[in-house]
Simulated scan of single mutants.
Amino acid sequence: MNDDSRWLAAAAALAARARPLSRPNPGVGALLVKDGRVLARGWTQEGGRPHAEAVALGLAGDAAHGATLYVTLEPCAHQSPRGPSCADLICAARPARVVIGCMDPDPRTSGAGLARIRAAGIAAEYLHSPACEESLAGYLLQRTQGRPHVTLKLALSLDGCIAMASGESQWITGAEARAHTHAQRARSDAILVGGGTLRADTPRLDVRLPGLEARSPTRWVLTRGTVPEGWNALPSPEAIRDMDAVQYLFVEGGAGAAAAFLKARLVDRLLIYRAPILVGGRPGLGDYGLCALSQAHGRWSLVERRALGSDTLEVYSAR
């Protein structure tokens, strides 16, 4: 990686602080760098304003002149009642150079942000950054496909079970894996289970990590029936296109809901927590429509593996 790619990757890591509080706006990260030193940094604030660039430029003040601004997403070019466009703020701050890691598919900005900055005599370029695209996955899917990014979580025994034959499931995994799951909940706009899981377990689906309790996502259940107070009904996986302002959906199970989303080809990321136990109970995944074993191959790429206490986490992305 060259220096530009490294700084963009650092800005993408910074953008994680915006998720999911920046909704309905994307979570963007920005860094102002001069002579290899970070002058200021910013990320999209709660409720979507101020934007990452505005935060970083405001902190840097006059020091932004002559620096390089790294931004994960193309600076916005449209005016808003909530504040000026980031492209205009950049033009006024006069950095020497702007590097962005992802073009904005929003038609109000697409290409116009870079064009406005260049017209002001500031060098501006797009450098494709997988790290930036990954950090904006939910926003990009909403803009291009009209649906949220979907993560499917499965907590399994070594023999692929999510519960004993009796239905007992608390707990398959240990405390470290459960804490990691709660951190993933805190990064999601919405969380979903199947109707069977809701009836059998009455799950809370909240975030129980100290300091992050307020980040509990909205609760959804996959059902065409009525739902309890505080829950939302999703009639089918395809109906995620009607989930307003949801960029990141976390599907926690059970086997039927997991199979339904996989069958609809609407899972973008798999989190598989595997405990070193044998249960001989209820399988973690139902039939999701494969007609031949060959259809199962080539669908997933392993992107991360780590130990969480005595358990193992594997993360896969859809190909």
Score class of each variant (00 low, 15 high):
residue 217 P to A: 08
residue 202 T to Y: 14
residue 243 M to I: 11
residue 148 P to F: 07
residue 175 A to W: 11
residue 17 R to N: 14
residue 197 T to K: 04
residue 1 M to G: 15
residue 296 A to P: 02
residue 244 D to V: 14
residue 237 P to G: 12
residue 243 M to L: 15
residue 260 A to Q: 07
residue 15 A to M: 11
residue 253 G to E: 04
residue 22 S to I: 08
residue 28 V to W: 03
residue 185 R to K: 10
residue 198 L to I: 11
residue 49 R to H: 15
residue 152 L to Q: 03
residue 22 S to W: 07
residue 281 G to R: 04
residue 212 L to D: 08
residue 206 D to V: 09
residue 248 Y to D: 14
residue 6 R to L: 13
residue 253 G to T: 02
residue 161 C to K: 03
residue 12 A to H: 06
residue 182 H to F: 11
residue 232 N to T: 13
residue 246 V to Y: 04
residue 316 Y to M: 08
residue 170 Q to A: 15
residue 229 E to Y: 08
residue 237 P to T: 13
residue 130 P to I: 11
residue 167 G to R: 07
residue 255 A to M: 08
residue 137 A to R: 14
residue 102 C to R: 07
residue 109 T to M: 02
residue 133 E to D: 11
residue 170 Q to N: 15
residue 196 G to H: 03
residue 285 L to R: 09
residue 276 P to G: 09
residue 171 W to R: 14
residue 122 I to S: 02
residue 160 G to L: 06
residue 94 R to N: 02
residue 125 E to H: 09
residue 42 G to F: 01
residue 285 L to H: 09
residue 16 A to P: 00
residue 84 P to H: 07
residue 53 E to H: 07
residue 258 A to E: 03
residue 231 W to K: 08
residue 243 M to F: 11
residue 87 A to D: 01
residue 218 T to N: 00
residue 298 G to K: 10
residue 270 L to Q: 05
residue 177 A to R: 07
residue 120 A to R: 00
residue 220 W to I: 04
residue 174 G to K: 10
residue 259 A to I: 09
residue 122 I to H: 01
residue 270 L to K: 04
residue 206 D to S: 13
residue 204 R to Q: 15
residue 34 K to T: 07
residue 258 A to V: 07
residue 251 V to P: 03
residue 92 A to D: 12
residue 116 R to C: 00
residue 291 C to V: 13
residue 85 S to D: 05
residue 102 C to W: 04
residue 152 L to S: 03
residue 60 A to Y: 03
residue 237 P to S: 12
residue 112 A to S: 08
residue 258 A to N: 08
residue 138 G to A: 09
residue 107 P to E: 10
residue 160 G to I: 10
residue 109 T to F: 03
